[in-house]
Design a protein around this nucleic acid. Sequence first.
DNA 1: GATGAATGAGTCTTCATTCAT
DNA 2: GATGAATGAAGACTCATTCAT
Lengths: 200, 200, 200, 200
Amino acid sequence: MTRDKSGSSKVGEKKRKKETELFSAAYELFTTKGTQNTAIDDIVKRAGVAKGTFYLYFKDKYDIINRLILQKSSQVIKEAVEKTEEQKLDRFEDRTLFFINYFKENKLMLKLINKNFSWGLFRRALRNPEQYKEMEGIVEIFIGNLVEKNMNLDEAELTLFMIFELVGSVCYSSIILEEPTTIDEIKPILFKKVLAMISY
Amino acid sequence: MTRDKSGSSKVGEKKRKKETELFSAAYELFTTKGTQNTAIDDIVKRAGVAKGTFYLYFKDKYDIINRLILQKSSQVIKEAVEKTEEQKLDRFEDRTLFFINYFKENKLMLKLINKNFSWGLFRRALRNPEQYKEMEGIVEIFIGNLVEKNMNLDEAELTLFMIFELVGSVCYSSIILEEPTTIDEIKPILFKKVLAMISY
Amino acid sequence: MTRDKSGSSKVGEKKRKKETELFSAAYELFTTKGTQNTAIDDIVKRAGVAKGTFYLYFKDKYDIINRLILQKSSQVIKEAVEKTEEQKLDRFEDRTLFFINYFKENKLMLKLINKNFSWGLFRRALRNPEQYKEMEGIVEIFIGNLVEKNMNLDEAELTLFMIFELVGSVCYSSIILEEPTTIDEIKPILFKKVLAMISY
Amino acid sequence: MTRDKSGSSKVGEKKRKKETELFSAAYELFTTKGTQNTAIDDIVKRAGVAKGTFYLYFKDKYDIINRLILQKSSQVIKEAVEKTEEQKLDRFEDRTLFFINYFKENKLMLKLINKNFSWGLFRRALRNPEQYKEMEGIVEIFIGNLVEKNMNLDEAELTLFMIFELVGSVCYSSIILEEPTTIDEIKPILFKKVLAMISY
DNA sequence: GATGAATGAGTCTTCATTCAT
DNA sequence: GATGAATGAAGACTCATTCAT
C-alpha cells in the first residue's frame, strides 16, 4: 500500500534524494557556467543519474531553473532575515543595512538569480500560501516600516522593488565581475544610497 | 595594396556598407528576438550578404554583440545629452532627470543592453580616445557636478554607476516586462530615488 | 499453486480484469492517436495500473497491438454476421452488401486495423480452433457460396481476400481521410465493384 | 555571378549530387526497414554526408518521405506507361492489364508507397503542371476510356481510385509478405477482378 | 502478482564556423 | 573580397523495458 508520494517510506526517501541531487548539481553548474552553457547532460552526469531521470522530476530545463531560483532566493532571504533578527537592532535603517550585508554573502546564488530574476515570478511565489509564508512576513514588515515613515503603500512597494534591483545589479557586478571595483569598496556607497532611497 | 581599413576609396565604401548592413540587421534581430535566439544565418539573410562575409567583418558572434552594444549605447547617450543641452535647464538635478527621461525612450536598445551590459566594457570604451571623446565629456561633466556637491571623485563615479544600474534595471523591467507596473507609474518614484542618490 | 491462467477463481478474475482494462485503454488510444503515437505510459495511466503490470500481460508493444487487432476484428465481423443473418436476405449478393455496409460502421476499428492488418495473421487466427470457431463458419459460408457459383476453391478464397483489401482500403481512405470523397458518395460504386468481383 | 540555383555550374552539380545521394540512401533504407525504423542518422551515414547536410535539402523527415513517394511513384507509373505504349495493344483492357503487370514489378517502391500512399497527395501532385504533365495525360486517357464505355466521369475516377487501392494492397501483400500466396498465383485472379471492375 | 522509479540508447534538430571556388 | 555548401558537435527530449521492493 502506498501511503505517500514523497513521504517517509524508503522509496520516498530515495526519490527525494535523487531530486535533491539533481537540484544541487544543477545549482553548482548554473552558478559556475551559467544556465545557458549548462546542458542537461552535464547535470545528470554530475548528479550521477540517467538522463531520463531528469525528466522524471522536471518538465524541462526552464522548470528546474525557475524552481531553483525560487527555492534558493527564498532560502537566502529567509536566512538573512533570521540573522538580522538575531542582531536585535533597533533602527529600521540598521536592520535594512545588516540584511543587505548578509544577503550579499551568497555569491553563487547572486550569479544565478541576477540574470534570471523576475519580479513577477517572485511576487507570484510570495502569494503561494504554503511555501512562502515566512517570506511574505518579511516583505510586509519592510513595507510596513516604510509606510510608517509616511510613504504610501504603492511607493513603499516600488521602493522595495528598486532596492532589490539596485542591490542585485551592484552586487552582481562588483562581486562576480569586480566592476567597477570590489564589493568592499562599493558597499559603503551602496548603503548610503539605499538609506537615501528609504528616507526620501 | 590596401591602403586603408575604413577609408574613402570606392572599395572601402562598399566594405563599410556591408558592415553597416550587418550591424543594423543584427541590431534589429537582437532587440526583437534576443541575441540567443538570433542565428548568424538570420543576420546575413536580412543583411543580404553571404554567410562567409559575416566572418570577414566580425571575429565571431560575441564580437558583433559587444561592438553593437558599445556603438548603440554611446549613440543613444550622445543623443540624450544633445537633447538635454537643448533644454537649457539650469539645475543639475533637472538636467539629470531630463536626461534619464530621454534615455529611457529607446526601448529596443534597452532590451539589447540590459542583459549584456557590462560597466567594464563601457569604461573601456570611454577610454578609447578616437571614438568616444564626446561621451567622455558627458561623464566628466556629470561627475564634476557631483564633486561640486562635495562628493569625492570615487563616490561620484560609483554614484553614476549605480544610477546606471538602477535606471537600467528598472526601465528594463517596467518597459519590457511591465513588472511590477508600467514605466509611467514607476517614473515619478524612480526620479525621486535618483535625486536622493545624487543629493545624499 | 496456480491452477489456471484465465480461470474462475477470484485472483483469476482480478487478473482478467487488469488485462481487459489494458486492452480497452490501448484500443481507445490506438484508434484515436495511432499506435505509433501511443506510449505504454499512456496506456497504463488510462488503465489505472502500474507500468510494470503491462509487461505481466503482454510481451511487448507489438504483442498488444496484434492481439487487439485480432480480437477486435473478429468481434466486429461476428457482429456484422449476426446482424446480416437477422435480415433474412435471400440472395447471396444482398447478404454480402448488407454485411459490408454494417462492417464499415466501426470507424475506430477501421483506423486501427487498416495500417496494421495482415491477412496471414488473420488466417492464422481463423485456424485457432478455440477462439474463432464462429468466424471460421462465416468464411466458409461465404466461400461456399462462391463455389456454388462455379468458382473453384482457390479463387473463392482469393476473392474474399481481395474484397477485404478493397473494402478495407476504400473505407479507410474515404471515412478517415475523406479522400477522394465521402464514404456515402463512394458506397454505391464500391458495392457495384464488389458485386462485379463476386459475379465474374 | 550566380546564374542558377541548381543548374549547370560545377557547384550546382555537386549540390544536386548530394541531394540525389540523400534521396537514394533514404529510398534504400525506407524500403528495407520502413520509414519508421530509419533514422536520419542512418540516411546520412549511408549517403556519406554530414547530418546537417540533410537539413540543407529537406525540411524534416516527412519532407523526404513525401518527396520520395511522389518522385518514385510518378517515375514508376511513367515507365509503366511507356512500356505499355510500346506494346501497341489495341484493346483498352489489354493495355490496362499490361500496365498493371509492369507496374507491379517494382517491389521496393511498392513497400514504400503502400503504407504511406495518400490519394490526396497523389491528386495534388497531378495538378502540379510542371512536373507531372505526362502522368496527368495517362490518368485522363484511362478515365476517357471508361467514359467511352458509358461510365460517367465521377464513377470513372472512383473506379481508377479503387483499382489503385486494390492493386496496391494485393501486390503489397503478395509480393512483400507472400500472403495469402505469391503474386504469380494471385495475378490471374487479380486481373479478372480488375477487368470486372472496368466492365461493370 | 503489482508497483513505479530508473535507465540510457535513440531521435530529431540547430547552428557557429570553415573553406574550396 | 565574396560566396554558400558542408560540417559535425552539441543539445533537448522520448520511451520501451527492467528490476528491486
